[in-house]
């Protein structure tokens, strides 16, 4: 990848990702409303919310919280750029983890009990999905011969037929990152529930807007990582369709499940998620896949 091409892809990714993320969020709210027998807001509603939040008066509990909101957004944008310029998958996932930690530090810097409980639950969520994401890089590297995303592009054939078990495990991580039921334990989807909005409770106005923007980037990035499983080879459009089908399945699951407890989440993600990936690594090493 030449330098100029890398710069162009990075710029396109930084601009296009939030637009896609916001639209996905809008469709999400519309679909959810229809599933509940309502009409729902317009598809561009998330953009109205975002602009409104940017225009609100700044109110922060402390300056550190402000830095954390910026840190979360900037780290996630860095991770998106890493994907766009086909850099190291492991480093990308570590940066994503640090972004999550930023959110937690900001939440824990305030004394509000809702924020505190949200912060602690967010840490548990990191603990639940980070091992899945990091371990998922191993079978990919075993197949393609390196941790670079460029290696996946150079591999020449889709990864999904060999690594579908890893792909299933990643779907568990996707539920947590999208903050969807049954695993939306740190920031309940609706702000009138028992932990208000948990980790997001104490962020308001422009800083909530920054976090919302970061969340759009994060969702699209995770879908893009799922897309890596079919990025090369024939039928390139499947690289877009497969993540979108998974995303739609998440919406259905979100609407039919209640929120689970944190202990259930850990058992589920470590028990099933990590085991699936371990099995996949085992099979790849044996040459069965």
């Amino acid at each position: 990848m030449s330098t100029s091409w890398a710069i162009i892809s990075a710029i396109i990714a930084v601009i296009a990702t939030p637009l896609i993320g916001g639209l996905l969020r809008g469709v999400d709210r519309k679909v959810t409303a229809h599933l509940q027998g309502r009409i729902g807001p317009p598809i561009i509603q998330p953009f109205y919310d975002f602009i409104k939040l940017l225009g609100k008066k700044r109110m922060v509990a402390n300056r550190f919280q402000m830095a954390c909101a910026w840190g979360y957004l900037i780290l996630i944008i860095t991770a998106v750029v890493f994907w766009a310029i086909r850099q190291d998958l492991l480093v990308l996932l570590f940066i994503l983890g640090f972004a999550g930690v930023c959110l937690v530090l900001g939440a824990l810097s305030v004394k509000s009990p809702y924020s505190q409980i949200g912060g602690h639950r967010e840490l548990l969520q990191l603990l639940a999905y980070e091992p899945i994401l990091l371990l998922a890089a191993i079978p990919i590297a075993l197949k393609t011969g390196g941790f670079l995303i460029a290696d996946i592009f150079n591999y020449g054939q889709p990864l999904l037929p060999d690594l579908w078990i890893t792909f299933l495990a990643l779907l568990i991580a996707l539920t947590i990152v999208m903050r969807k039921s049954p695993l939306d334990i740190s920031s309940s989807e609706h702000a009138h529930q028992e932990i208000v909005r948990g980790v997001l409770s104490e962020y308001s106005g422009p800083y909530l807007a920054l976090i919302e923007l970061g969340h759009w980037y994060e969702t699209v990035l995770l879908l893009a990582i799922l897309g890596l499983f079919w990025i090369v080879g024939g039928l390139w459009w499947l690289a877009i369709v497969i993540p979108l089908v998974c995303w739609f399945a998440e919406l259905i699951v979100d609407n039919i499940f209640a929120r689970l407890t944190w202990s259930w989440m850990l058992k589920f993600s470590w028990g099933i998620g990590v085991t699936l990936i371990a099995l996949n690594i085992f099979f790849v090493n044996l040459g069965w896949m």
Partner: peptide, 14 residues
């Protein structure tokens, strides 16, 4: 269905 107008019920004054 107030969400038609973008109206959401928040439990949080902030």
């Amino acid at each position: 269905d107030l969400e038609r107008f973008g109206i959401v019920n928040m439990g949080n004054p902030k």
